[in-house]
Simulated scan of single mutants.
Amino acid sequence: MSIAPEAARLSTLLLRQLADLVAGLNEHQVGELLAGRTRLTLTAAQDGRAARPAPQAKAALPAAVDVEVLRTALLGATSREEAAERLAALGRVSVPQLRALAGALGVDGVGGKDPKASVIRKIVDGTVGFRLSSQAMLSEETDL
């Protein structure tokens, strides 16, 4: 087999895997990649198998929260304040529950030690904040 067809075959396989990876990202993650604030990183799998994170105990989502309804409300909010008010309307929600909610909403970057205010800010930024920032950047007039 000549080198050119083999290189083309390997490139095709790599691009398919990359496409599958990108297809699994949420809107926020794709936007972060496109804006250059996030990078894809290759790491070697140990023993030829994909590395898996250590299992962690997960907090349950608040019982009264419909994640899809909340996602729609947050994405439709016209301001960060409106999104924060929507989260405040959930009532008493523990920090672990907020972290679980962030995960269910596809919000990245929420750490296990983030305080409540930080988790709320990250949820707002990861939903409506991303859209509002993108709109603001696109609406700015620039002279090139």
Rank of each mutant, 00 (worst) to 15 (best):
L144E: 05
P62W: 04
L42N: 04
R52D: 14
G24W: 00
R92H: 09
E141V: 11
E81L: 09
V65F: 03
S133F: 10
Q56P: 01
P115V: 14
L138Y: 10
A83T: 08
E32I: 04
D143I: 14
S118L: 07
T78K: 10
G24V: 01
R37Q: 07
F130C: 13
R16I: 14
G103Y: 01
L40I: 09
V128T: 14
V93F: 09
D20N: 06
A57D: 03
M137H: 10
K122F: 04
Q46W: 00
A19C: 01
S11I: 01
T41F: 00
L25V: 01
S79V: 11
A100Y: 03
L90H: 08
G126W: 00
T43A: 09
P96M: 07
E140I: 08
E6G: 07
S133E: 12
G76Q: 12
R131A: 13
A23F: 04
L144M: 07
V30L: 09
G103I: 01
E82T: 15
A63V: 05
I123N: 02
A60H: 08
V93L: 09
L74W: 04
V93S: 14
L34M: 05
A88E: 12
A35G: 00
D108W: 09
E140K: 13
G103W: 01
L13H: 14
A73C: 12
D143M: 08
D47Q: 06
G36I: 01
A50T: 06
G31I: 00
I120Q: 10
K122S: 08
A63I: 03
D20W: 06
D125K: 15
A60R: 12
A64Y: 03
L70I: 08
A23P: 00
A59G: 00
A50G: 01
R131N: 11
G91R: 01
A102D: 05
S134E: 14
S94M: 03
P53K: 00
A88C: 07
Q56N: 04
G112P: 09
G112M: 13
D114Q: 08
K116H: 10
G36R: 02
I3E: 15
E81R: 10
G76D: 10
R9W: 15
E68N: 14
A84L: 06
A64D: 12
R86C: 10
G91I: 06
T78P: 05
P53Q: 02
G76R: 12
L13W: 15
V69R: 15
K116Q: 13
E32P: 02
V119W: 05
V124W: 02
R86T: 15
Q135V: 08
G109C: 09
S139Q: 14
A73F: 09
T43Y: 02
L10F: 11
S79E: 03
L101H: 03
L132Q: 08
V95P: 07
L21V: 00
R39T: 03
P55W: 06
A102L: 08
I123H: 04
D143L: 12
R71Y: 02
A104Q: 00
